[in-house]
Each structure stands twice: as structure tokens, then as C-alpha cells.
């Protein structure tokens, strides 16, 4: 049937165009870029120089490791902050109250990250609201600078990530049958053991989905670390920006980009392996 084939071709063409022209070819090109070295103006040879620079220069890989660690910490903190609220939405609050609480939790994330970061800057900077409050309450004598610390960056990152943790957690907790918890309780289970043996195994898919997405977004974040961390943010995306836009050293920037992509992919893969889930299911859940 010729028209079925035509239809298939017509539907397939835009999808392939999108994936090849905007995703696959640019990334292959980026890979090629990262494996070459400029030897003279407009003359390049294939080499591993860019990656050697990364491992040879402590500044670069320190920032890389730091970004990875901070992202991991931010992910765990987000999980800890989000789990109780997800539990309350899914199990404790009833009917309208639960729906209302859920919507209220989502509202801040409809607002741009720029606006939310502006809010944190007004709250935390030396002339800001919280330092003034601390002085007013007599806790500190002089206003203290609360911006530009690692803890500030973490607060900002947890804040921007909450939504991506709460949503998958709520949906996985909602599907947990209350009767299971009641049964566990009747059989003598205490809060902690019920959590460990019933709730967490059941919610594992949601937890993994949330953690993967949060880690990925945190790793690739630029706005929050640079604004809340200032010069001391030392975030890897900032290095990529510097190489690409400021120094115009595209080969080095491409290598950095690939390293970040590799780390991000590795963590996604690891998360899926540990929890034994399929990529497509996790993405649909998130």
C-alpha cells in the first residue's frame, strides 16, 4: 500500500531530522572536536591533548570531582527533605487536602529558576533579610554574609530540585497499599523497620527516578552555583562556559563537555543497574 509507506516516510522524516541534526551529529562533532589539537592557525591534528590537560591540571579535575560530590550530596539532601512531604501528600492528607498540598508544592516551580535565585540572594546576602533578622534577634552582632558558601549552594540546589523528587515519590507512594503497612504493624513492625522493609522497597522505582533526574539536573546546573556561590562556586559547567565562550578554546571545552556527559550518563546507568529498572520506564515516570 503505497500511501501507508508515504505516510510512514512523512512521519519519520521530521523525527529523524530532529534527532540527527540537533542531537546525534552535533554530539559526534563535539567528540571529534575534543580529540584534536591546534598545532598552527587553522591546522589541527588528532590527539588526546585536551584530556591530558584535564588530568594534568589539578584545578580542572578538582572542580570536576567537587561538582560530582556536591551534586551527590544535594541529591541525598533533596531525597531526605522531599520524602516526608511526599509521604504526607500520599498517605496522611486526605482527598482535597492532599490534592491541595500537592499543587501548593508544585507552584514555586512554575516560576523561573532566575526568579527563585533572586529570592535567595535577597534573603541571604550581607545586606539581606536573614542577616538583618539575625542581628535583630541578637544572634549575631554584625550582619554576616550568608551567600558564597558551599552550604548556600546546596540550599539553592535542593530548592530547585525538590519538584523533581516530590513528583515521582508521591506517585510511587500512592500505589503502596495501606493494608501492607497495617499488616506489618500488626505483625509487630516498628516505624523504622516498616519503612526499611515495606515502604522503601516499594518506592524504590520512584526514589531511583527522582535521584537520577535530580543528580543530572544538579550536575548540569549553572545559574544556582554561579549566583549563590559567586567566585567560590567552582562548578564544572562554569569551566565549560569559560573555555567555550570566554577563552574560545573549543577543543578544551568540548572535552570538558564530554567528561560531564560521561559522568552524567554513568550515574544514570548506575542508578538503573542498582535498582534494576529500565531507562524508558524511569523517564516516563519522571
Amino acid at each position: 500500500m503505497w500511501y501507508r509507506r508515504l505516510l510512514l516516510a512523512l512521519l519519520l522524516a521530521p523525527a529523524l531530522l530532529w534527532l540527527f541534526a540537533l542531537i546525534i551529529l552535533p554530539h559526534l562533532d563535539l567528540a571529534l572536536l575534543s580529540f584534536r589539537e591546534r598545532v598552527a592557525p587553522r591546522e589541527y591534528v588528532a590527539s588526546l591533548a585536551q584530556y591530558r590537560t584535564f588530568f594534568g591540571e589539578p584545578l580542572y579535575w578538582h572542580v570536576f570531582v567537587r561538582t560530582a560530590l556536591m551534586s551527590a550530596i544535594a541529591t541525598v539532601l533533596t531525597l531526605l527533605v522531599a520524602f516526608p512531604i511526599a509521604w504526607i501528600i500520599a498517605k496522611l492528607a486526605r482527598g482535597r487536602m492532599s490534592a491541595l498540598l500537592f499543587v501548593v508544592c508544585l507552584i514555586p516551580f512554575w516560576v523561573s529558576e532566575t526568579v527563585r535565585t533572586l529570592g535567595w540572594m535577597i534573603l541571604l546576602r550581607e545586606s539581606g533579610v536573614l542577616p538583618a533578622l539575625l542581628v535583630h534577634l541578637g544572634i549575631t552582632r554584625e550582619p554576616v554574609e550568608l551567600l558564597y558558601h558551599d552550604a548556600t549552594i546546596l540550599v539553592g540546589l535542593v530548592y530547585t530540585s525538590l519538584l523533581f523528587m516530590v513528583v515521582p515519590l508521591v506517585s510511587s507512594l500512592e500505589s503502596l497499599d495501606n493494608a501492607l503497612i497495617e499488616a506489618a504493624y500488626d505483625l509487630g513492625g516498628k516505624g523504622w523497620s516498616i519503612l526499611r522493609e515495606i515502604v522503601i522497597p516499594h518506592a524504590a522505582p520512584g526514589i531511583t527516578a527522582g535521584c537520577i533526574v535530580v543528580f543530572m539536573l544538579t550536575l548540569g546546573n549553572y545559574l544556582t552555583p554561579t549566583l549563590l556561590g559567586g567566585k567560590s562556586s567552582q562548578w564544572f559547567t562554569e569551566q565549560i562556559y569559560t573555555q567555550f565562550i570566554t577563552r574560545f578554546n573549543w577543543e578544551q571545552g568540548a572535552a570538558f563537555g564530554f567528561l560531564l556527559l560521561a559522568l552524567s550518563t554513568a550515574m544514570v546507568w548506575l542508578g538503573l543497574k542498582i535498582s534494576g529498572q529500565r531507562f524508558s520506564d524511569v523517564m516516563r515516570r519522571a
Binding site: 542531537i23 552535533p26 563535539l30 548540569g220 559547567t237 560531564l260
Partner: peptide
């Protein structure tokens, strides 16, 4: 394979999507 491929853009950090398209388009 295509349906997997369609999910890939969601797991690439935005900064890297940006630089790859920038580099490719400039070339």
C-alpha cells in the same frame, strides 16, 4: 531504538546541548 533515542535529549545536560549545537552550527 528510535523510541529510546527520543528520550536521550532529556538526559543530556542543557549546557552540553548548547555547546554541541553551537559548535556544530559554527562548523
Amino acid at each position: 531504538a528510535l523510541s529510546m533515542l527520543m528520550l536521550i535529549p532529556l538526559v543530556i545536560p542543557g549546557v552540553i546541548l548548547g555547546i554541541s549545537i553551537l559548535a556544530f552550527a559554527s562548523r
